[in-house]
Amino acid sequence: MTISELSLSVRDLACERGGRLVFEGLSFSLRGGEALVLTGSNGAGKSSLLRQLAGLLDVAQGVMAFEGGDPELSLGEQAHYVGHLDALKPSMTVMETVSFWRTYLGSIPEGADTALEALGLAHLADLPAAYLSAGQRRRLSLARLIAVPRPVWLLDEPTVALDAASVARLVALMTSHLGQGGMIVAATHLDLGLAEARQLRLGAEALT
């Protein structure tokens, strides 16, 4: 990740799912080192927006421009997406899971240990994911963020199933990511207490 200034600008974005207009006319811009916290009622389109940013959902209308990263790659290929599903295989061990994503997403085969350390999973490295509790599974899913350096983090309710200590750990990791010039878009109900966080409320106008 370079320190060079990142910027993401979204103009007039619309999202349509199953014939229903989830939101439209959404605009915001974000720079490196900044976090955007999405709030809004259920169904306001927080998850949809994150999936659109990750390239997992088609954009019905509008423009997303990401600058300052690798011009060869799309936004999705430079972003981490942590959704509701943990994307774990029960028969793969903690270490194997992180190593796989490291090789697959980042082509870096060695050095998964630091990611496990960062999420407090080092002592479980040889355990198959089937044995993990919900909170441990979530932490293993989050370990991707550290294992593969990518400038943009897209987090959909990342604190679900996490206890207070783990939330604090996650917030520390997020703060350090911002400090290195990265950017974060997160949907969360919990006030994470991030210093540079800006708020975007979805769904307010859609209620009319």
């Binding site: 981490h80 959704g83 994307a87 697959y104």
Partner: peptide, 14 residues
């Protein structure tokens, strides 16, 4: 698809 891995697979460089 069911466990969410497919989403992440499409976000790689492959």
């Amino acid at each position: 698809y069911e466990d969410g891995s497919l989403d992440l697979l499409t976000m790689g460089l492959l």
